[in-house]
């Protein structure tokens, strides 16, 4: 019953698929981010209260969304690896962690720069900000736990388990603005009902979101290939792939 699943997850298959997908993902990212930046920064109207400062949303919101998406993907890959003993899952989880941590850092920094003029402070111990900071530390924990073991297989398992357990923080980050009184505003797009934003501002934002997804996919594919190569360096197929 599970043979197709294991075949799909065989290292050479994953290696070749990632190689084939990379240029398409980069093309999608260039197209979407190119359009989103031009339309968002130059043509979208300024906000009635924030003026042009609102345009940081075109980097901030996609980064924050990707920080949660990358974490969930990392946790799912880790869970698959733990349960089905599929080693490629560890490679995907290891490849995703630093990318997700970078998006988290980008979201925190851009939000802080926006918070200073708008809220009047760079940082507040608000539920959304604090849970996003915990997300960053979870990424750091997963990355360093993997390297803390002499035996790489044990490091992989420990990091995957921490990743899976830490996934409880993902809904907390997302719903923190609705569950508690917070300084951070509620969701403008990711909410029940219509987005609280006209189309002229919304389309470039959605394009940036898609572009960031493509970019994440492209970088993930490249990093997965590196991880698979280094993990499978003793195997015959890698020797063949390198020599040919």
């Amino acid at each position: 019953m599970w043979t197709w699943f294991y075949r799909l997850a065989s290292p050479p298959y994953v290696y070749r698929t990632a190689a084939a997908l990379t240029p398409w993902f980069f093309a999608g990212a260039a197209l979407m981010i190119g359009y989103g930046l031009v339309d968002g920064l130059a043509f979208a109207p300024p906000d009635y209260q924030q003026g042009d400062a609102f345009r940081i949303i075109y980097v901030h919101a996609p980064s924050a969304w990707l920080s949660l998406f990358a974490y969930t993907l990392m946790a799912v890959a880790g869970a698959i690896a733990l349960i089905w003993r599929i080693k490629v899952g560890y490679a995907v989880a290891a490849a995703a962690a630093p990318i997700g941590a970078s998006f988290t850092l980008a979201a925190l920094v851009t939000g802080s720069l926006w918070g200073r003029p708008m809220w009047g402070t760079y940082w507040a111990w608000d539920p959304r900000l604090t849970s996003e900071l915990i997300l960053l530390f979870l990424y750091f924990g997963v990355i360093s736990l993997r390297q803390a073991f002499e035996d790489p297989a044990r490091g992989d398992r420990a990091a995957a388990l921490l990743g899976v357990v830490g996934v409880v923080n993902v809904p907390i980050v997302h719903f923190s603005v609705t569950w508690w009184n917070s300084l951070h505003q509620g969701g403008t797009v990711m909410r029940l009902g219509k987005p609280e934003m006209p189309g002229s501002m919304l389309w470039p934002l959605l394009a940036m979101l898609a572009g960031f997804m493509f970019f994440f996919g492209a970088v993930l594919c490249m990093r997965v290939r590196g991880e698979v190569l280094s993990r499978e360096r003793q195997s015959a197929w890698v020797r063949e792939a390198v020599i040919s």
């Binding site: 009635y48 403008t188 934003m197 006209p198």
Partner: peptide, 18 residues
């Protein structure tokens, strides 16, 4: 001793607001 402004989730162009 400290006042922070809370921004809401609504975005709109100035003409629409007017």
């Amino acid at each position: 001793d400290e006042v922070l402004a809370k921004h809401d989730e609504k975005y709109m162009p100035p003409e629409v607001a007017a």
